[in-house]
């Protein structure tokens, strides 16, 4: 693995994260009133507000206020919820693992269904089953996540009465099925299309013909020779989907009452609890950046062409 590329790509994260904090800072400034009140809330203890205002430096320049904001963030101080007066950082640390659990489950759904369907589509290219699947994936991509979640809930909870409609109950598997499927279906549909395209490219390669000509069984050729090589773009896409699950989690967790950061953010939105919303946005963006970094590094590890070419 090229050390130069790794270091360069990792260092690029620093300005991005600085920029993210700058944007959340301006959002904080856009709130009416003093940014210290924006983080602590007007009903917070006088001592807390004093601490925040001291950090921001009353009447200081915007740049000095930004530095104060950064100092607060470095100490893990995202402010206090207006509503519960709990520290946002603590709440986030508590809720993050639940969202992670949900995202991992969704990823399993997406990768399993997506790659499976994609391979079937590529093998039966142009036939009825391929066309049906193409139409089906296009339809799933066009469905809003929250609506799909409500439909699944209606069918599986109220009509068939198979699964519980909401809650997490200490992470029992039954409760995970619906939210994970809802979150994963979009990604599964787009993964299926990418797998199909990538498999079609690979299946046209001469080494596949060679493998077939040697008389290897068809399933072996498809799975061992073709799929293994077709997976590289798919893996990148899986990583990017994992990051975008943060978007979907906001809606999915709200519908299914899953107690993760998505629902936490939405509760913050409903109550106009600005420190909570800004904290979630900040953490969400930082996670997104880190996931993208991991994806890029993994990709370079898998594909030697990337790590040697200069980034545009």
């Amino acid at each position: 693995m090229n050390v130069y590329y790794t270091v360069q790509r990792t260092l690029m994260v620093v300005p991005t994260i600085m920029g993210i904090t700058m944007i959340t800072f301006f959002l904080l400034k856009a709130l009416p009133g003093d940014p210290a009140y924006g983080l602590a809330g007007e009903r917070a203890d006088a001592e807390v507000i004093a601490r925040f205002s001291q950090e921001f430096g009353n009447n200081a320049s915007v740049a000095a206020q930004y530095v104060g904001y950064l100092k607060l963030l470095v100490r893990g101080e995202f402010g206090h919820s207006y509503y519960t007066n709990r520290r946002v950082a603590e709440d986030l640390a508590e809720k993050l693992p639940r969202t992670f659990q949900l995202a991992c489950a969704a990823l399993c759904v997406a990768a399993g269904c997506g790659i499976g369907i994609g391979v079937v589509m590529a093998v039966f290219r142009g036939r009825l089953i391929d066309r049906c699947c193409l139409m089906l994936t296009a339809t799933f991509i066009a469905m809003p996540v929250f609506w799909l979640g409500l439909l699944l809930m209606y069918v599986f909870c109220f009509v068939l009465k198979l699964l519980p409609p909401a809650g997490s109950d200490g992470g029992r598997l039954m409760f995970l099925v619906l939210p994970a499927s809802t979150l994963g279906v979009h990604a599964a549909a787009s993964l299926a299309r990418i797998t199909r395209a990538s498999m079609i490219d690979v299946l046209a390669q001469p080494y596949i013909t060679t493998a077939r000509a040697k008389g290897l069984p068809a399933a072996g050729v498809i799975l061992r020779h073709a799929l293994k090589n077709a997976l590289i773009p798919v893996i990148t896409m899986i990583g990017l989907d994992f990051g975008s699950f943060l978007n979907g989690a906001v809606l999915t967790e709200t519908i299914f009452g899953w107690d993760g950061i998505g629902r936490y953010a939405v509760e913050g939105v409903f109550r106009r609890d600005y420190p909570v919303v800004l904290g979630c946005v900040l953490i969400g963006a930082v996670l997104f950046v880190v996931v993208n970094l991991v994806v890029d590094l993994t990709y370079a590890l898998c594909d030697p062409r990337i790590r040697h070419s200069k980034k545009m």
Binding site: T16, N247, V277, C280, G284
Partner: peptide, 23 residues
């Protein structure tokens, strides 16, 4: 490019929510 990359670094819905909440 750096500005573009910065805005692409946000999960888009979260960013839209943050802006819409403030306005």
């Amino acid at each position: 490019s750096m500005t573009i990359d910065l805005f692409l670094a946000f999960p888009s819905l979260l960013l839209a929510i943050a802006v819409a909440v403030v306005l």
